[in-house]
Design a protein around this nucleic acid. Structure first.
Length: 259
DNA sequence: AACGGTAACAACCGCATCGCT
DNA sequence: TAGCGATGCGGTTGTTACCGT
């Protein structure tokens, strides 16, 4: 006799989410906020378990998710943070605003782990980053991909649409980063730099049909943007200093700080 | 065109941890 | 402080698209 399942699976949907299910979930969270995952499916009219709803929201539907490509700078930071933190994906994800632990984990398993393994004899993170960039450029040339964006493409996720309504502010201090990227944090709101997030491609069409509005961008206005390589380097250097420090207490505290 | 192999990523599962009573 | 439910996390699996033969 095994462990009781977290929730009854009788009559519950599994597998890929439909547009309708996504809409119901978004609609409910818009009205009532996150949390109470166990009761949420019933309240929202979903035939899913709470865990599934939470995962779907956190990994895919949240409007502060950056669904664009993993940039070489992010790629580099992931490698370096992984060298410091190991498989603590949630901690790494917190340093990459807009990226989820699941996305980073998948990216690591499918891209980076092999590369790091191959380079384990001679690599430095800088070198691996350069290699990544070069490989990307080579691939793009091979595919006749026009380089229309400044950010080079390393990883092309499934089709998504850029939402015009999510505007968040830039925060550049380590302190503000330490506070994390969650929607409930106290990030800075001082400047007007705009960033856009991608949302599921069918959202716009579906929203038009159902008169739905996506959650107010203001609710996510403290998310920290990525794409600034200096910023990402700064983050890593801060961690490196903590880990290299003489004070073991300070060294141990890095995980408390990150959590 | 058909098939097999593989990469990418969404989703699931079970354990760990947190927080309330 | 023990018990229990809710939530978070990381490992793993399933599905699909893509590519080479």
């Amino acid at each position: 006799m095994g462990r009781a399942p977290c929730c009854s699976k009788v009559g519950l949907n599994r597998g890929p989410w439909t547009a309708r299910e996504d809409t119901l979930l978004i609609n409910y969270i818009q009205a009532h906020g996150e949390g109470h995952w166990r009761s949420l499916p019933k309240m929202a009219g979903l035939l899913r378990c709470g865990k599934s709803c939470r995962l779907r929201w956190i990994n895919y539907l949240r409007p502060d998710i950056k669904r664009g490509n993993i940039t070489p700078d992010e790629d580099d930071l992931i490698i370096r943070l992984h060298s410091l933190l190991g498989n603590r994906w949630s901690l790494i994800a917190k340093r990459l605003p807009g990226r989820t632990d699941n996305e980073i984990k998948n990216y690591w398993n499918s891209h980076l782990s092999k590369r790091v393994l191959n380079n384990s004899q001679t690599n430095s993170t800088t070198r691996s980053c350069r290699k990544a960039k070069k490989a990307t450029e080579k691939k793009q040339k091979a595919n006749n991909v026009e380089e229309k964006e400044e950010i080079k493409v390393l990883h092309q996720p499934k089709a998504s649409r850029v939402s015009p309504f999510s505007v968040i502010s830039r925060s550049s201090s380590f302190e503000s980063l330490i506070s994390g990227s969650s929607s409930s944090g106290e990030g800075s709101k001082g400047t007007n730099d705009a960033y856009v997030f991608d949302i599921p491609s069918y959202w716009s069409d579906f929203a038009a049909d159902t008169n739905l509005e996506f959650p107010d961008a203001e609710a996510f206005s403290d998310a920290t943007p990525v794409g600034d390589s200096n910023l990402l380097d700064d983050i890593f250097e801060e961690y490196q200093k903590l880990l290299d420090g003489d004070d073991p207490g300070e060294r141990d505290s890095i995980f408390d700080v990150l959590s």
